[in-house]
Every structure is written in structure tokens, then in C-alpha cells.
Design a protein around this nucleic acid. Sequence first.
RNA 1: GUGGGUGUAGCUCAGUUGGCAGAGCACCGGGUUGUGGCCCCGGUUGUCGUGGGUUCAAGUCCCAUCACUCACCCCA
Length: 417
Amino acid sequence: MIQRIKGTRDLLPPEVDSWAFLESMAREVFSRFGYKEIRPPLMEWTELFARGIGENTDVVEKEMYTFPDSQGRSISLRPEATAGVVRAYIENKLYAANPVSKLFTIGPMFRHERPQKGRFRQFHQINVEAVGDPGPAIDAEIIAMGLWFFERIGLRDFRLSLNSLGCPDCRPDFKKALLSFFETRESRLCEDCRRRLNKNPLRILDCKVPTCREVVQGAPATVDHLCSDCGAHFAKVREGMDRLGIDYDLNPLLVRGLDYYTRTAFEVTTTRLGAQDAFMGGGRYDGLTALLDGPATPAIGFAIGMERLHLLVGDLAPETRPDLYVAALGEAGLDRAFALTHALRKAGMWVETGYEDKSLKSRMKQADRLGAKHVLILGSEEIEKGKAVLRNMRNKEQREVDLASLPESLLSLLGEE
RNA sequence: GUGGGUGUAGCUCAGUUGGCAGAGCACCGGGUUGUGGCCCCGGUUGUCGUGGGUUCAAGUCCCAUCACUCACCCCA
């Protein structure tokens, strides 16, 4: 048997209805804030991600699905959405039409990791980007928009963490302070963190090893090393959050794993997802457009993990039920039902039926399983009398219907409810 | 890439010191019922994840392998 690829999932009913529901709620919320949908391709030149996300991030170094095309050029399945959206923004010169482009996209991403709870190799994100606005007002607004979406789908028990990562002006300064702090305490760090010391010292800050956490307690914080512009920007973001009445944790240990992030960084976490506790994350990336050969343009965005979100909210889509089940018995009944069912469907009803000659008992069971609101019994006895029996499954009431009056009589009878 | 746990019917799972592969649900037929649900009778469904090994005999013991799962790592 051919099995699905590790880390991929078959999204089946009824879960797929819930996904569609979540997506439609997202569309509704985002559209009120002026965000438009964009659908960039699932694959891009590998170089886009290498430059955009960062050559020596884990994502680019060991998690991408990368392969050569027929001419030997390297292509990668997108491991995240922002690089592709920004590429599309630049390539299509969206900046020419509007100073600010507010965009969202929903779809699959691909990363080659060991799967676990809330983590898949093909996973799905709702991605939102505001390109062209330097903030800080939009920083607070875009976060508030995400939280409002969560509220709309009934999600409440989460925490918002906020930090500022600084900019190319102040980050080197901070990194230096961080390095000298950790170098004197290297012996107390775990093996991974000693490796990070040279590669990406920021990441030591969110190490989960208890001994590292102790060391990190006294570490310098990004917010204490911001340049005056970044400091003022962050203060304004926090002021905006207060104005909107949004509660948050200031978390100086919050860092992001993608190189393009600057200034505002945020993450929404829950205690109900096991190890993969972040289901929304994002931040500002003011340097990315220039890095990708576009005009220098400030931007901010976030991503929501669909799988994680669905784990949290469960199945929300309202249950739908067939209007009618046609229980056709015998050859005559089946023949009658075939055209009738088609006519009723064309008239707008949801009609279910069966095509094999089975017992009435099994027909009624099937109607029950499907949750049909009504059953039309069409047996040879009824047909001989020129009648069919319509049963209301809720109040058990039955009535006879003239075959000659079908399908119009049925439509008006069922339309009354 | 590194660890732990789990693989038996469509689903949830039993299976004793190694001795004829099982239950419940689901499905199909029948009985009962006012024509489905509750109840009763009967029936269908298996590469015991896969491949080796030990044994008279392996779902059970040993080795390998694959899949799933949780955690590390990483991130949404």
C-alpha cells in the first residue's frame, strides 16, 4: 500500500469544514481592516529564501525541500510565506499603486522536520503582511486584529508576548553585550547553547534547559540596548496596545528564528498545545524589501498556524443536514427516485438517496445516520396507489403526497419550514 | 539528526507461563416495533505493521526494519 508522506495529513470531513470556517472568519475579519488576499506560488527560487530568511537559519540550512529543475536551477517549496509575498510585492511594483499594501494569504508551507504534536512537514498558515507602513500605530493594530480574530472564533485562554529586537543600528551593540555576558558563563550553558554562542547568541535567550534559564535570568535585555529611534518606536507600540486595551507580557527573552525580523516582535502562546505552544507569531521586518532588491520599505506581519489553531478551537463549523432522504424500495421505486432526486437538487435542496434495493429498515438507518430532516418513502405499494409517504424526522409526522404533484408539492411542503 | 512510547477487524481495544485470533461499536440479513432509534437472533470483515530467527508450536520470546506518536531541536 502506498502511504502518505511522513508529516503530511489527509484533511477529511468533517474537519475540513472547520478549516473552511476558520478561513472564512479570517477573511471576514481581515477585510474590515482593508487586507486583500494574495496567492503567491508554493515554490520559489531557493535564493529567495536563502537571502530573505537567512543563510544560516535552521529553516534554510536543514529544513527546506529543495530540488533542481530540469535546467539545474535550485527550487524550494516555501517554508514560510513572507519572503514570497515580499517578492511578489516588489516584482509587481505594488508600491507604485499604493503607499501601503495590506495583504494576507492562506495556504500550505513545507519544512522537513520530525513531526510531533502541532508540527507537520506540510503545515498551513494564515499569513498577514502590511508592507509600506513604518508603524508604530499599525504594529499595535495588526496585533489587535489577530487577537480580534481569535476572539471571534471563541478563543480566549492565550498569552500575548511582546518584545523589540532593535534594528541594524542597535542590534550589533546588543549582541556584543550578550556575547560578553554569556562568554563568562559558558561553562554553565548546555551543549546546544555553547554552539549558539558563535552562531546565533540571541537564541540562547529562549533555551528551555533549566540551567540555561537560570543563566539567562541576568542576561542583558534587548529593550535596554535599543537606539533612540527603536526605543521611541517601541514605546509608541506599547502605548497603542494600551489604547486598544490589549493585555500583554513584556518578554525580553522573546526572539525570532528568522533573520529578517527587526523592532517589534510578538508571539501568542497557549498552555494547551504541548511543546509547540506558539500558534501565532510575527514581527516587523523593515530591511527585507531592500534585501530582496526592492525599494527600502518598512513592513510588519504575522503568521497563524492552522493545525495548532484547529487543535485549540476544535470543530466549530455548524453541522449541516440533508433536507431530504429518498428511501426508494424496489425497482419501481428506485427508477422513480432517480429522476426525482435530481430535480429536487436542481431546485436547491440537499437530497440524499441510495441506489441499491435494500430493506426499509436499512434505509431508515441510513437516513438517521445522515441526519436527514425528512424521509420520502417510495415503495412499490405506494407507487401502485400513486402516492409516496413523507415523514418528518423531528416530530414523526407523516403525510401522503401524490406522485403526480412531484416535485413541486415537496418543494412547497419542505419550504414551509 | 537524537531519544521514549505504540503497532491485533473499518473504529476503540482484550489476548494469561508460547497451544485453534477475540469483544464492543460499525456494516448486512432477519425477529420485535406503528416504518428507523431500544431489544433479540444470525452473518460479513484479519498479511496480528513488515522481514528474519528460536521452537513440535509465535500475536506472545529474540534481532532487524517500517509506520505512527510524544519529546529534544526548530518554529506557526
